[in-house]
Simulated scan of single mutants.
Amino acid sequence: MQGMIFTEFLKMVDIFYSPEVTERIIKQSNTETNGAYTSVGNYSHSELVSMVVALSEEDETPVQDLVRAFGKFLLGQFCEQYPGYFLAHNDIFSFLDHIGNHVHTEVMKLYPDSRPPMIETTRLGLDIMELLYSSHRELGDAAHGLIEGALEYFETEATIQRNQLIEGEKTCIRFLITRTSTQLN
């Protein structure tokens, strides 16, 4: 898993909890790196899972809620670091269409060892989109948080229906995003 995910997770813990909590969860976790990550490194996703579990125990917040909050936080970080990706789109559906077809393709060019999730979108109508998420990692809650963050960024109210699909050893989730209103700038 890309190191940037690890560095952003630790940044979130620093911001929303404290650097002391960050240090405690690193010490409590089963990590080969002892919490020393670089954004361009590649690390076992089990280290991230271990840190999330440690944070869950520290904060008594369910793991799923923490991972979803991390996804939302991560979207905000992407907005700051890659504003061009967001400014190129004027609505949530255009942006989500772009992720699987362009963003993850570019990630693979930059980091050939990476294995980003597969994202496929289908517009089912003017105000409804199906997004299929497939990954060998169990980070569907992060994907859910990323969608929620994107909805906030594009100032769009929507409902998100989520169905877990079975596909071998992969995590496959079908998100149905139904736009209920759009705030125009």
Rank of each mutant, 00 (worst) to 15 (best):
Q2H: 10
Q2F: 08
Q2P: 06
Q2G: 02
Q2S: 07
G3F: 12
T7M: 11
M12I: 05
D14P: 00
F16H: 09
Y17V: 01
E20D: 13
V21H: 00
T22V: 04
R24I: 07
I25Q: 03
I25N: 03
K27W: 10
K27H: 13
S29N: 10
T31F: 09
T33D: 05
G35D: 10
Y37F: 15
Y37C: 06
V40G: 08
G41Q: 09
Y43F: 14
S44P: 04
H45Q: 10
H45G: 06
V52M: 10
A54T: 03
A54L: 05
S56K: 01
E57C: 07
E57Q: 14
E57P: 02
D59T: 15
T61H: 05
P62H: 05
P62N: 07
V63D: 11
V63H: 08
Q64Y: 13
D65P: 02
D65R: 06
R68I: 06
G76S: 11
Q77M: 12
F78S: 00
C79A: 13
E80H: 08
Q81I: 09
Y82K: 06
P83D: 10
G84H: 05
Y85E: 10
Y85V: 04
Y85K: 03
F86K: 00
L87H: 04
L87F: 02
L87D: 07
N90T: 09
N90G: 10
N90A: 07
N90V: 03
N90C: 06
D91T: 01
F93I: 05
S94A: 13
S94Q: 13
F95Q: 01
L96W: 13
L96F: 13
I99K: 02
V103T: 04
H104E: 05
H104N: 13
H104K: 01
T105A: 13
T105V: 14
E106N: 06
E106I: 05
K109D: 08
K109I: 09
P112G: 01
S114K: 00
R115H: 06
P116K: 02
P117Q: 04
M118T: 10
R123P: 05
R123L: 14
R123D: 07
G125R: 02
G125F: 02
D127M: 12
Y133K: 00
Y133F: 14
S134L: 11
S134R: 15
E138K: 11
A143D: 04
G145H: 04
G145V: 01
L146I: 04
E148I: 03
G149Q: 07
A150N: 00
E152N: 07
Y153T: 00
Y153Q: 00
E155Q: 12
T156L: 02
E157I: 08
A158M: 05
T159S: 14
Q161Y: 10
R162Q: 13
R162Y: 03
R162G: 01
N163W: 09
Q164V: 13
L165T: 03
I166K: 12
E167N: 14
E169A: 11
E169W: 09
T171I: 03
C172W: 09
R174D: 12
I177D: 08
R179S: 12
S181A: 15
S181Q: 14
T182W: 06
T182D: 06
Q183A: 10
